[in-house]
Amino acid sequence: MAFIEIRDLVVQFTRISEDGSETAGKKAIDGIDLDVEKGSFVAVIGMNGSGKSTLAKCLNGLIIPTSGKVLVDGMDTSDDSHIWDIRRRIGMVFQNPDNQIVSSIVEDDVAFGPENLGIPPEEIRERVDNALKEVGMYENRLKGAHMLSGGQKQRIAIAGAVAMKPQCIVFDEPTAMLDPKGRESVMRIIRQLNSEGITTILITHFMNEAAQADRIVVLGKGKVLADRTPDRLFSDMELIDRAGLELPPLIELREVLGLSDSIMTVEDMISELKKQCR
């Protein structure tokens, strides 16, 4: 059994018109099947409105499926009695760094999750300190959150998730509002957490970030358009166009040069060009 199992998932929002009557709105998710294995790193990409964020919110029961099932560690997200067990297993980091920090002081915010879990104070302290060290923000633990840069705030949000000791963290466009430096630091932490065994689901618009995953799921109009390894995805130009995506720069260069699909990194490119030079 996979850590997350999604079966025939449909999410349809209801529209409430001015007279109060409810009509079925658009299907944000329209029949998705997906398995995520423990410890894996899955990227989810697709245009705005393709259903990425809705899918993310289904994973920890922030949105309950209209039909179909989402199972986390065997527990159904639509079963109320398991909801807190699911949310402590799946942490979530959102796009806007400002809007997900609850407390004014850094360490108090990181403590918010563990406090909700009812953990004894000494253990919360330990978890908060460790989480802050993990994201490299321990020195800033007593600072006011509003004094930090966007990238630093996002690291605090990650620490807040880490302090709950989740098995999986879902990142919903965590770098969209950051500058390049902040983006890089957040991606470094994401890779580091995944290498420590945390199942990682990364929703992103940046192809070079998606290319770092083991597997990329492409969404379009609420359906899975593709579910492949990065090298197999980025060799399918027709799909990239259809899904409104773009190639990472290196792969674009590879395609223009007409080189083999097996070239996925600069190192691959260099060794191929060296061969050609001889």
């Binding site: 705005n48 796009q95 509002m177 618009h205 192809m207 409104g244 995506l245 773009e246």
Partner: peptide
């Protein structure tokens, strides 16, 4: 272009 998907960015 901040925060847009690749198509909207282009």
């Amino acid at each position: 272009t901040a925060g847009l998907d690749p198509a909207a960015h282009r």
